[in-house]
Amino acid sequence: MSLGVAVGLYGTSFGAAASAAGFSVLQACATSLLVFTGASQFALVGVLGAGGSVAAGVASSVLLGGRNGLYAVLLAEVVPARGARRVAAAQITIDESTAVATTSPEGLEPVGFWWTGLTVYVMWNLSTLVGAASASAIDPQAVGLDGAVGAAFLGLLWPRLREAWPVALGGAVLALVAIPLTPAGVPVLVAGLAVLPALVRR
């Protein structure tokens, strides 16, 4: 249940952030319905809101969403889904549903996956609507929304730091160097190069 509340707050933040970036309520809701992967959505509205190009926004967002493909390979081993069910399963393949499914007791992985994925889908989309529709009534800066979005990215990064801190550090340095030199959105793509040393070394 706390997952539902957390997703609700995160989704409301997304709706408000999308609105602050110039998205209409319909565009914010369509993003959550169709894209449905939080960090990518925040990346997209962050880049476009900062004046970045469509190409830079889409590229950083889709690259970030690439991890869901890896999750799907792992899930396909324990969650049977064919035809239309596979399409639905693909759309709800995200951090949360994967985390629950892969830590469920043997045999209960499909229950954990579908229950979590569908709950998050409903909460995420409802809260996006609430956030986008009420955004005009609030001042994002006065309530600290921009600070919360930064903290949200850190929260998603946190569990990866133990294994990947050198890559995270490299990405941070590359991004800071690139911010003054390149258009909005490009620093995130440049930071992706931080994985190369780890790949070449072995």
Binding site: A43, G150, L157, R160, A168, L169, G171, A191, G192, L199
Partner: peptide
Amino acid sequence: RGATLLPAALLSALVMTQVF
């Protein structure tokens, strides 16, 4: 490895651009 590590680089960069 690439698929595991890439999100760390991108999320870290997003923290930087969002905060600084």
